[in-house]
């Protein structure tokens, strides 16, 4: 369902002091495949290239080299078709606080070309699942960050996407809300959806992910199931694997 083949992405940044333009290789030849009914955990430190990879999968950014296929569509050629079959959520996504959740979902239903009746029904169902149905008609101005995150999740899933990308979905959430999100991810796996989750929370990865990939300096390391990764590295936890890879990466550089 998701296929990345030797994907590269670089950015140019200008040093304001020295006025020198530098090229930063954010993603360096990543290849991976995620199948339906699978949750793939993408780990890595800040600035490793996780969000860039996810944005490329979501058709928001174009790879410089390589190819990405989502739901059978090439992201560069058919970005709209890709986004139509994909639900994308990122922690740095805000909600339109002047609207109520119901209004917001109605509008995004129109954007995703969902029948208004179906959007209404599905929106309410998602809000119920996320324990937010009582707030469906309350303006989001006074919502907590957790409540806003729940609305964002409902927005991302409104059009019943086959592929779901959650970029750090539990950041800033309390334990209860985080659990709700994890339960939802499990349900999505059971429903046969393809899920990619990027996170810093290792226990969460061990708990729900079928396979794990760790990104350091734009390169993917250890693309395997969590237990297999632990065994191959002789580690007791994913944290340990993470530190080993970080040391290797530093040594390599």
């Amino acid at each position: 369902m998701i296929q990345l083949n030797e994907v590269h992405k670089s950015f140019t940044v200008k040093d304001r002091k020295t006025r020198v333009t530098k090229r930063i290789d954010a993603v360096r030849g990543i290849s991976l495949e995620v199948k339906p009914g699978e949750i793939y955990g993408l780990l890595g430190p800040n600035g490793a290239g996780k969000s860039t990879t996810l944005r490329m999968i979501a058709g928001l950014m174009e790879p410089d080299m390589g190819s990405i296929h989502v739901c059978g569509h090439e992201t560069r050629q058919k970005p709209e078709a890709v986004r139509g079959c994909l639900g994308y959520l990122s922690t740095d996504m805000g909600v339109y606080v002047r609207f109520t959740p119901r209004e917001l979902l109605r509008i995004f239903g129109e954007f995703q070309n969902v029948d208004p009746m179906i959007a209404e029904r599905r929106g309410l169902h998602l809000l119920e699942k996320l324990q937010l149905a009582d707030f469906a008609d309350v303006k989001m101005e006074g919502f907590s960050s957790g409540q806003k995150q729940k609305v964002s999740i409902a927005r991302a899933l409104l059009h019943d996407p086959k592929v779901v990308i959650f970029d750090e979905p539990t950041t800033g959430l309390d334990v209860l809300t985080a659990k709700t999100v994890l339960d939802l991810l499990r349900i999505m796996r059971e429903e046969g959806r393809t899920v990619i989750v990027s996170t810093h929370v290792m226990p969460m990865v061990e708990d729900i992910c079928d396979r794990v990939g760790i990104i350091f300096d734009g390169k993917l390391h250890g693309d395997a199931p969590p237990l297999e990764l632990l065994r191959s590295r002789g580690a007791k936890s994913l944290d340990e694997v993470f530190f080993q890879l970080a040391a290797e990466s530093e040594g390599g550089n």
Partner: peptide, 15 residues
């Protein structure tokens, strides 16, 4: 500034 532009761009609407 309100981080809402990304949610619009993530829809199937052409840019």
């Amino acid at each position: 500034e309100r981080h809402t532009l990304l949610s619009l761009m993530a829809t199937r609407l052409p840019r």
